[in-house]
């Protein structure tokens, strides 16, 4: 699939020439002549990269990047600028982080295309730590075809067992896709898919065994995470769900709406449930493969 780029620039001639160059290089380019149109495009088109001039007729490129960070936070942003870095006022935009490329660059269009490729491929602007071998992990996840596994009932039984045993606010199985976490089974208040930079499981899968957080307000990684407060998450225990090749697909988790600790025996019990959930997923993957419903065994 071609890389989809949103390109915002109020100068018709410049925009058309740049869009033509990028399209000619195989990119799917959506042009916007102003901030409003570009912001609307972000709500209707799944873009892989946002490119903008600094000055737009009704705002500036950094405002567009702010909207992008809220809507699609992993998406790389490039200021393809008609100004120098010293002319860019970052006041109020300090945490956005974007690439900068001057239009005065020799072979600017070619360099822009390569920069887009680099940023999209390397996921260079994500707001969370990536596991080692993330591409391998995603490839392993892709082999599961999670939606087709019909594992819902089995996972629901396990999360219900967890909720009853621990008496926590919520128990769930989450899978970490490229950009968000999906919740396959959840007991307690429902969870909608969540951007990875807002999830605790993104950190849990970096751990070999378990991640426990007694109080999210007492951990620098989570204390300012408004999504956790919104979801009443103050305590967390998550065990990675490992596939047969060791890749962490997601985690089996408990959350509570009050700070709490998890004893060693509680962690061991959670690890048993996580091991069972991982095996249920893998058995179903093998079953589908054996029936010829999938390519992979």
């Amino acid at each position: 699939m071609p890389v989809t780029v949103l390109y915002a620039d109020g100068d018709d001639r410049t925009r058309t020439a740049t869009a033509k160059a990028l399209s000619g290089a195989g990119l799917d380019v959506h042009e916007a002549a102003n901030l409003e149109t570009a912001s609307e495009t972000l709500t209707t088109v799944a873009v892989d990269c946002v490119v903008a001039a600094y000055t737009l007729p009704d705002g500036d490129g950094l405002e567009l990047f702010t909207t992008a960070r809220e809507a699609v936070p992993d998406t790389p942003c490039i200021l393809f600028a008609d100004v120098t870095t010293g002319q860019v006022d970052t006041t109020g935009f300090e945490g956005i982080v974007a690439e900068f490329l001057t239009r005065g660059h020799p072979n600017a269009h070619d360099r822009l295309r390569r920069l887009i490729d680099e940023l999209v491929t390397r996921r260079s602007q994500v707001g969370y730590p990536l596991p080692d071998h993330e591409e391998t992990r995603l490839a392993a996840l892709n082999r599961y075809d999670i939606e087709g596994l019909a594992a819902q009932e089995a996972l629901d039984r396990l999360t219900e067992l967890a909720l009853r045993h621990f008496g926590v606010h919520r128990a769930f199985v989450g899978i970490l896709d490229e950009h968000e976490e999906r919740f396959l089974s959840c007991q307690g208040p429902a969870l909608d898919p969540l951007a990875r930079e807002k999830t605790m499981c993104t950190h849990a899968i970096l751990e070999p065994d378990v991640m426990t957080i007694e109080d999210t307000h007492d951990d620098a990684r989570f204390e300012h995470n408004d999504a956790l407060d919104r979801l009443d998450i103050r305590a967390y225990a998550g065990v990675p769900l490992h596939g047969p090749d060791g890749a962490a697909l997601g985690s089996f988790c408990l959350t509570d709406d009050e700070p709490r600790s998890f004893s060693e025996s509680e962690v061991q019990y959670l690890q048993l449930l996580a091991g069972e959930a991982a095996e249920q997923l893998d058995l179903r993957r093998r079953l589908r493969a054996a029936r010829g419903e999938g390519e992979h065994r």
Binding site: V97, V126, A220, H224
Partner: peptide
Amino acid sequence: DELQPVYRFLHTVTGRVRS
């Protein structure tokens, strides 16, 4: 306050160094 921008910034720097 938030760590997300720091991760984003460090990925930007280290990604550039790798590329």
